[in-house]
């Protein structure tokens, strides 16, 4: 049971129909079962294809936010970093970065939750195929780490 009054949002994003792009969504599915099984409270989940402006309102309601995404460019199997609001340039509207979402939350709603990004290494983004075995292995390593991290936050 959550001992601290931290309200936590875990937000996975990506397209589960696009192979390793869906790692963030798979992580949310796994974590929501784990949270339910362990009867942790004050932990909510959300997921979408990509982040967009309305997510700034959503994250403004929480003390702690953990975004989960997949990425090709990271070297390690996964990477968990604390992020800061960033008035960042971006070139497409397919996505907004977690840092930009945090910036909007601070600018529009005066809220700056403690925010982390868990990036899990993926390899292929083909349509209509299952995630790669290597990516699944990375996912389970990342899940093991983030579960310990969440337990630390709530205890």
């Amino acid at each position: 049971m959550t001992k601290k009054a931290n309200k936590i949002l875990i937000y996975g994003y990506g397209n589960p129909g696009r192979q390793d792009d869906g790692l963030g969504i798979l992580a949310v599915d796994n974590l929501s079962c784990w949270v339910k099984k362990n009867r942790f409270y004050n932990i909510d989940f959300d997921s979408n294809y990509q982040l967009n402006i309305e997510d700034s309102l959503e994250i403004s309601k929480y003390n702690v936010v953990i975004f989960i995404d997949s990425g090709k460019s990271i070297i390690k199997s996964y990477n968990l970093i604390k992020i800061s609001p960033l008035k960042k340039d971006f070139y497409t509207s397919h996505k907004m970065s977690p840092e930009s979402i945090l910036f909007l939350s601070k600018e529009l709603y005066g809220k700056e939750p403690e925010t982390y990004l868990l990036l899990i290494k993926g390899y292929k983004w083909d349509i209509n195929k299952k995630p790669t075995k290597k990516a699944i292995k990375n996912l389970y390593m990342a899940l093991k780490h983030i579960k310990k991290f969440i337990e630390k936050i709530i205890k």
Binding site: N52, I53, E54, S56, L57, K87, K88, D89, F90, S100, F103, L104, E107, L108
Partner: peptide
């Protein structure tokens, strides 16, 4: 020229945009 600066300079418009999208 991006929505970040809309938020900084025209906050009411940006708040509306967020809620309409949501």
């Amino acid at each position: 020229r991006n929505v970040i600066n809309i938020a900084i300079e025209n906050k009411d418009l940006a708040v509306q945009a967020v809620l309409m999208r949501k």
